[in-house]
């Protein structure tokens, strides 16, 4: 999809040579701290930002030159979106559907994002999470081959997030390619086939959630209680360690846990060297010439 992607703001490099390849039908999550370059990268792929270097191909075309026929195959859920307050959910979805050549059925899309009972309500009266679901409905109503989701679940409660995940999973199962940026590690782990970690304008790692940063092969922590204190042993052979413990302690091991680093642990380790130098991406509020 992209090789050597570069973007500069003044003398700061927002993206410093990003390589990214997303396969058809894949769900790819882009992770990174605020200001890492996620939105810049995604907006270049969406054709909203000009790049300063590198090759980009999205659905076979260069986003900067692609036309409406290309947009017909895309769904875009932007990071910030408002301005629909005066319309009802159905009016907004219906009018967006009109722009596409193969739109999905309006009421079916509204039901898919869980807003069937709010279809007649003004969007201004919905909660933050419900409005975000309207954004998602507008993004998927054109039956896109490729869907961009920029921090889609910010502000969702856990219940709404679960429902949203089911929706994304069903879209992915029907063959939609999805590029998602998120702050939530559990979201990436749940949804993504592969994740990429961006910090300070560089791609630090790309892998499946379970293999990221050597997670699968890294040491596990075996913890148990013995003689009133908690013990922890780091080992690459936890099964052997547990068997050894079991025979030594003769039976049940008190409060035994075996843990591997979570995606969050791995992620935090990956970005740790970059978090203080990663302010290269201008936030939406900033104004740059």
């Amino acid at each position: 999809m992209a090789t050597g992607l570069r973007k500069r703001y003044g003398d700061r490099a927002a993206l410093d040579g990003i390589d990214l390849r997303i396969e058809r039908g894949e769900v790819f999550a882009l992770l990174g701290p605020n200001g890492a370059g996620k939105t810049t990268a995604v907006e270049i792929l969406e054709g909203f930002r000009h790049r300063d270097g590198g090759e980009v191909t999205v659905l076979g075309e260069d986003p900067e030159r692609a036309g409406l026929a290309w947009r017909d195959r895309l769904g875009v859920v932007l990071q910030t979106s408002s301005g629909l307050d005066l319309l009802t959910v159905r009016e907004a979805v219906r009018s967006t559907a009109r722009a596409y050549s193969r739109p999905r059925q309006v009421d079916e899309v509204i039901a898919a994002v869980g807003l069937a009972d709010r279809a007649q309500d003004r969007i201004g009266r919905l909660s933050g999470g419900q409005r975000r679901r309207v954004d998602v409905a507008l993004g998927i109503v054109g039956s896109p081959e490729l869907l961009f989701l920029d921090e889609p679940t910010t502000g969702f409660d856990p219940e709404a997030r679960r429902q949203f995940w089911e929706l994304i999973t069903s879209l992915a199962e029907s063959g939609t390619t999805i590029l998602l940026t998120t702050h939530y590690l559990d979201e990436a782990e749940h949804l993504a086939d592969r994740v990429g970690v961006i910090a300070a304008g560089r791609m630090l790692a790309v892998d499946t959630p379970s293999n990221l940063g050597g997670r699968a092969s890294s040491e596990a922590a075996v913890s148990w209680d013995e003689a009133g204190t908690r013990h922890t042993e780091r080992t690459s052979t936890p099964t052997e360690a547990v068997a050894r413990l079991a025979s030594r302690l003769g039976g049940e091991i008190p409060r035994l846990t075996v843990t591997r680093p979570t995606l969050e642990d791995t992620y935090l380790t990956l970005i740790a060297p970059h978090v203080n130098t990663s302010a290269a991406e201008p936030h939406e509020e900033d104004v740059h010439a």
Partner: peptide, 18 residues
Amino acid sequence: SAERDDGTLKRLRATPMP
């Protein structure tokens, strides 16, 4: 100007609307 500021224009531009 309100529609440019609140992202309505950008959202419309993301669709194949002429």
